[in-house]
Nucleic acid binder design. Sequence first.
DNA 1: AAGCTTAATGAGAATGAATCTAGTTTGCGT
DNA 2: ACGCAAACTAGATTCATTCTCATTAAGCTT
Lengths: 148, 148
Amino acid sequence: MTAGAEIDWADHALTTLQEAGHRRGGARTAVVEALAAHDCAVTALDLDDELARRRPRVARASVYRALEQLEQLGLVRRIEVGRGVAGYERVDPTGHHHHHAICRDCGRMVPFEDRSLERAIGKLCEDLDFEVAEHDVVLRGRCQHCSL
Amino acid sequence: MTAGAEIDWADHALTTLQEAGHRRGGARTAVVEALAAHDCAVTALDLDDELARRRPRVARASVYRALEQLEQLGLVRRIEVGRGVAGYERVDPTGHHHHHAICRDCGRMVPFEDRSLERAIGKLCEDLDFEVAEHDVVLRGRCQHCSL
DNA sequence: AAGCTTAATGAGAATGAATCTAGTTTGCGT
DNA sequence: ACGCAAACTAGATTCATTCTCATTAAGCTT
Ligand SMILES: [Zn+2]
Ligand SMILES: [Zn+2]
Ligand SMILES: [Zn+2]
Ligand SMILES: [Zn+2]
């Protein structure tokens, strides 16, 4: 990973927001910065927690609102991290991405990427009567730590 | 698909439940029958709705409890059908299964299966420091009907 | 720089899927 | 038939997420 990828992303995100006609507000900027600091998925409540100590406090509603807008613009992707909780992670504009293995026992998320998986998905999407915009792969089981 | 696959599954499910030490109760049996009648995912609330007219009425809590037990025994699998709603579908004991493309606009679910996708997943699971029990693939976009 | 328009924000209420609780019923071994 | 634990029902509760609305402030316009 190239150093400063997060900073680049935050910059890119703020620019895209502006170009989409959004004003520049403190709460949303804080959410973007917080997201930039994580390279894998975080829940909205985790973000809310991180931003709770700011002054003025970032409201929970603002976190959700920002995440929704970012998702709409394709700047973050939303993934289900189990039992009705959503995780959000920044989207690399190059399309480079990873998927997740989630431990049933401890909830740990192990990211992975696989070239031939992507190839298979790309191919099957062509043959499908469906305009596929994004895909999600989740593996569930026991992580190395829990399967001892 | 062989005729009566649902009946076979209901039978198999009830037997497995019994072997696991469960008593035979009306509510759970009703849930099994309802699941057997669907060959793709249904939400718990849909099931609750279907079973609402029964006498005596099947309680919502019973639907959720039955689904959880069935999932525990590997008889149904739970999939996220979007925005914090779970869908459940019966598991074919042979391991034969499909995945889903979900329309962003209308919510329609289009099931698909792909041999080389499964092969890719099988292979990458071997190379992973993770004991993978199941996998899930979700494609999101616009269905044929909504992309006109 | 002051005024204006309207997006953005904060606080708290509302929603809705999922879970829990308590009291009742029922399956099943004795 | 009896007794006990499992299963059931109805309703309360939890908790992530969404909504409402009064307030603040970004960024034009003059
Ligand atoms: Zn990730
Ligand atoms: Zn991928
Ligand atoms: Zn299905
Ligand atoms: Zn598969």
